[in-house]
Amino acid sequence: GGFGAIASPALAQDELEPNSLEDITSYNNFYEFGTGKNDPARNADALETADWRVTVDGLVDNPGEYSLEDLIGGLTEEERIYRFRCVEAWSMVVPWRGIELADILDRIGVQDGARFVAFETAVQPDNMVGVRRRVIPFPYVEGLRLDEARHPLTLMATGIYDQPMPNQNGAPIRLVVPWKYGFKSIKSIVRISLVEEEPPATWNIINPREYGFYSNVNPNVDHPRWSQATEREIGGGLFAPRKPTLMFNGYEEEVASLYEGMDLQEFF
């Protein structure tokens, strides 16, 4: 992606104050390591990240099992300070480091006919206590429409601040789609597939009434069990005021055109 494409989000980021690394690494949803917010920080040490492989398949020119070096080596790494809004109505600001997904897609060669990108999280039953408990079906899967995947804001993150990606945040490589609820930003990716049909997405499978495939941050479409109009900012302490949630999590200018003509109440 060119610099021009990210100039406006970069400007919009100037006012964002990133959360501390401590906040970012101690308050996580990563059900493979337990459902409590501090479970991942406690349990994710066990994740085996050495010799990580990512399977690339489907409608691509260069399918295969990629090492991280093969997948992203030589691509431009940037820092991106993004708002991160969880579907549970809390938010934080994370200074990610990573590569635009579009650059990876160019490397693997997307073929005509591919309309979606599907992702899959690692399953390491011996190392993941949550996988043994089966709180949700594993492996965790997610997907994006190809134009969403190619958007210059869409990142494959490999670090936070100047650290390699902490295990509890989805080491060694994860998706970051800042205008969507956090669960779309799938962690610890082991498979990238280019496909023709809309791929399954874990929370959408579990409860399609509550979690849509798109799951764009939208203050006007409530979760059936809670309001999405406002959010709690993590790290503000006991008495921090709620903040209004922004359309597309504040990235409306950059991404609204992706959804032109779509009824966002229906395709939530």
């Binding site: 308050y27 809390w90 993590i234």
Partner: peptide, 18 residues
């Protein structure tokens, strides 16, 4: 517990924890 929440001992989201 309230004191711990107010002083950061309950993690970065003390309201939910309480």
């Amino acid at each position: 517990l309230f004191y711990r929440g107010a002083t950061g001992a309950l993690g970065p989201e003390p309201v939910e924890a309480l």
